[in-house]
Nucleic acid binder design. Structure first.
Length: 421
RNA sequence: GUGACUGUGGUGAAGUGGUUAACACGGCGGAUUGUGGUUCCGUUAUGCGUGGGUUCGAUCCCCAUCAGUCACCCCA
């Protein structure tokens, strides 16, 4: 079908682009304030990067990647997320050499082969930030705060911030054993999905939506209670900073992220009204990822915000600007002789930066006036046969209805004054 | 990837197995010569997502397919 885009893709037309721009500008602005610099990496990478970075057993890698072989027989993948790629770039471009911390942000499309539904597309857009280098909990707080402020700036309300600590390679394996032990005799009663999780990723069982599994896992020991000293201290530190910043959060010991690289801090911001796809921001610390990608042991933390979901949430709260097509000045040629002088007048206006337009279809004065009216024109410059001959225009003020026959030069001068003032 | 529901013009939508597919908004044209926002008039889907099938005949029945929505799953 030539008239439909690929499944799960979406066109952003002019009426919507304005709101997208506002969201993106808000992101850029806040990143500047918090000292994060923009990074633009390719939308495809070697498949290997995602296998290693995200984790081979994750759902994202196992069933959601757009992977293909290029003409040179290399396996490449459309990025399903951007943290791995940013880390790759950080190492390849040796950003560690320039400063103690690489504080980066990105905005761009991501690709996941999912079954589409509202708030879930195959090509979607993320605004994300990464702080590579710093280890202290104040960065964790800074990042979470940035996300919260971003939503505040857009005017969004009723968001829930959930935080948890998922431990580190020192304490998580031990916790897994403790958890598996707890669930051992209940294993048969878990849902099918959770039974396979038991060995692969038992922590996800805590996250299951099945009522049955919830009951079975009730009272299970929690990661936060089994953190090693370092992780516990880090988590306590984070909470202290968040409290100081007066950012309210919910401690959710069952919050687990689906990407393997997360350590210590994990967080999510939800907008419940979005239904099943309510996570509007997700992130956490990934202290092992840089090493996993072949770099020196370096801590890092970041988040990603789903922009389509942000726009949906804004729509629900009536925060979107209405689509409107505004052209403050219309030039109206009447008849063939008028089109050349009309066009040169238009050209002069545009060179002065005055947003203006004209009809190219030779339509009637009446319909051109209508058009001007629809686009909220403040002025209309009519050029008919008489005006064309004498290098004049009839300049009409659309709000007062007054009009005057003046020279083209005079019209340009007046419009320049009016439009800049 | 699983299950369910939906699919009529630019938009919101009514509708029926049988000549011309309501209505509203929008668009376009007009209501005496070159003037908008109000009003009035006219016009605007050779077509009912697409492809098959059933039938004398299908937009309305069946199948497939595509797309969307909801839930699961996953996650942003």
């Amino acid at each position: 079908m030539l008239t439909t885009g690929p499944r799960g893709t979406h066109d952003i037309i002019p009426a919507e682009a304005k709101n997208w721009r506002r969201v993106e500008e808000t992101a850029r602005k806040i990143c500047e304030v918090y000292h994060y610099g923009e990074i633009r990496t390719p939308i495809f990478e070697h498949t290997e990067l995602f296998l290693r970075g995200i984790g081979e057993t994750t759902d994202v890698v196992q069933k959601e990647m757009y992977t293909f072989t290029d003409r040179g027989n290399r396996s490449v993948t459309l990025r399903p997320e951007n943290t791995a790629a940013v880390v790759r770039s950080y190492l390849e471009q040796k950003l560690y050499a320039e400063a103690q911390a690489a504080k980066l942000f990105y905005i761009g499309p991501m690709f996941r082969y999912d079954r589409p539904q509202a708030g879930r597309l195959r090509q979607f857009h993320q605004f994300g930030i990464e702080a590579i280098g710093p280890a202290g909990p104040s960065v964790d707080a800074e990042i979470i705060e940035l996300a919260v402020r971003f939503f505040e700036k857009l005017g969004l309300k009723d968001l829930n911030l959930l935080i948890n600590s998922v431990g580190c390679p020192k304490c998580r394996p031990q916790y897994r054993l403790v958890l598996q032990e707890f669930l051992q005799d209940k294993k048969d009663q878990l849902c099918g999905n959770c039974q396979s999780r038991y060995d692969r990723n038992p922590m996800r069982i805590l996250d299951c939506k099945e009522e049955k599994c919830n009951q079975l896992s009730a009272g299970a020991p929690q990661m936060v209670d089994c953190l090693c000293d370092e992780c516990a201290e880090h988590f306590a530190g984070l909470r202290q900073f968040l409290d100081a910043a007066k950012i309210s959060y919910t401690l959710n010991p069952r919050l687990v992220r689906g990407l393997d690289y997360y350590t210590k801090t994990a967080f999510e911001i939800q907008y419940p009204l979005l239904g099943a796809q309510s996570a509007v921001c997700g992130g956490g610390r990934y202290d092992g990822l840089i090493e996993e990608c072949g770099g020196p042991a370096t801590p890092g933390i970041g988040f990603a915000i789903g922009l389509e979901r942000v726009l949906l949430a804004m729509e629900k709260q009536a925060l979107l600007d209405p689509a409107e097509d505004v052209v403050p000045v219309w030039v109206i040629p009447l008849g063939k002789e008028a089109s050349l002088p009309a066009y040169s007048l238009l050209m002069r206006l545009r060179q002065l930066g005055i947003s203006s337009d004209m009809d190219h279809g030779g339509r009637s004065l009446k319909s051109q006036m209508k058009q001007a009216n629809r686009t909220q024109a403040r002025y209309v410059a009519i050029i008919g046969e008489d005006e064309a001959r004498t290098h004049q225009v009839t300049l009409k003020n659309m709000t007062t209805g007054e009009q005057a026959l003046i020279s083209a030069d005079e019209a340009v001068k007046q419009l320049k004054q009016e439009m800049n003032g």
